[in-house]
Amino acid sequence: MAFTHTDQQELFLPLVEGVHETPPWGAFMRNLVARTYARRAFLIITLANAMPSQEPTVIHVTAPRAVRERQLDFRRINALGLHPYGQLRPGRVYAIDEMLDFDDPARLALQRSALAEMGIRYGRWLRVSAGGAADAWLLLVREREDFSSAAVSTLAAIGPHLAASLRTLAALAEQRLQTAMAQAALARLGAGQLAFDAGGRVMATDPQAERMLTFAPAPDPRGGRRLQLLPAASSALEKACSAIAEGHIEATAILLDPARDLHMLLRKCDLALPEPHALPAVIGTLRTSVREDERAGTRILRELHGLSDREAALAEKLSRGETIIEAGRALRLTDETARNYSKRIYAKTGTRGQGDLVREVLGGLTPFA
């Protein structure tokens, strides 16, 4: 099948760009429905490492002529027990009649009746496989007449391109997972990060930093964003970024907001990024005072160090700066019992007093609980 300029504009470019949509490929699906004269279309996406209990992503697109009809839930089609679409041969276009159970007349009648009630008389299935990373199934349905050979050819021709886009989507999903894990860990510590160029313009931020800071309402005409700061703080930020970028200093801390006593650590960017990339000159780190949920922290301390429930609860409170007496009374312990528990805590954690215990707790896994 020869690809036309219209194919490129309406199908293949939206496939490339659609991996960044949420959910993906909405424009591609709408254009495909228009090109094939389908009444409805479903795209079912399953990532290879998804949990068995996780439902697949289902993208449903309706033609304008059917937009006022009742919304069709793919789970109704799935409940009919059609031929297991996970066993379809990738790249081949199947008619919906090939999915019916002709070995069981009663079941076949039930399937036909249910499809008719949903306004589905004709359909085409296409399975696309992304090399073990993900699978997708494309279903187009019509009500009054079958799909033309041109529509079926278009669907078949899309297969390899959709497979390539699906591989890209699976790779992006893995990168997004990695990013989300890193950001969640920083957020549990109350930390946020920004990337700056040599002029102090913001190249990227994580969600925690976005919440902690205010940005200038208008984009910087030279590209990037600017933090909305008092003049003194803005000047200090620009000078520090310039000095670090030129190699005069490796790191420094500046006061961003005197009212909140909010400081930022600026250090030379040492990220290893694959090409092509726009390497920041400076990484900025913010941190607020955040601690883990006390009950979760107590549980982790108990599991890490073999403490009893009361010992772990006392250790958690001691790590927050409470005195032995204060922490013990909060737990309804006598002063003498609290002192005895603290000695056991120090012995089991290998620490030599409350200050050493604080270091052990804050430098370990407990703050991530």
Rank of each mutant, 00 (worst) to 15 (best):
G223I: 00
E69L: 11
E292Q: 15
L266W: 04
I300V: 15
P217A: 13
G363D: 02
L166S: 07
L265W: 08
E360L: 07
A187K: 15
A245E: 03
K239L: 08
Q354I: 06
L162K: 05
D270K: 14
Q111R: 08
E311T: 00
E250M: 06
L110D: 12
M99Y: 07
V58R: 04
A187C: 12
T351K: 02
I77D: 02
S308V: 02
R176P: 03
V128N: 08
A50Y: 11
G200Y: 08
G321Q: 01
E17P: 03
T285W: 10
G224N: 02
G192L: 07
L271S: 09
V33T: 04
T252L: 07
V152Y: 14
G91V: 01
T154C: 14
R222C: 01
R124W: 06
E250S: 12
L304V: 04
A330H: 10
L229T: 02
G355V: 01
R339Y: 07
R30L: 08
L229V: 02
W125G: 02
I120Y: 09
A187V: 10
L32I: 02
L314V: 00
S113E: 15
R359E: 05
R121M: 12
I44W: 08
T46H: 11
D103P: 04
I59L: 11
E210A: 13
A180N: 14
R339I: 02
L314S: 00
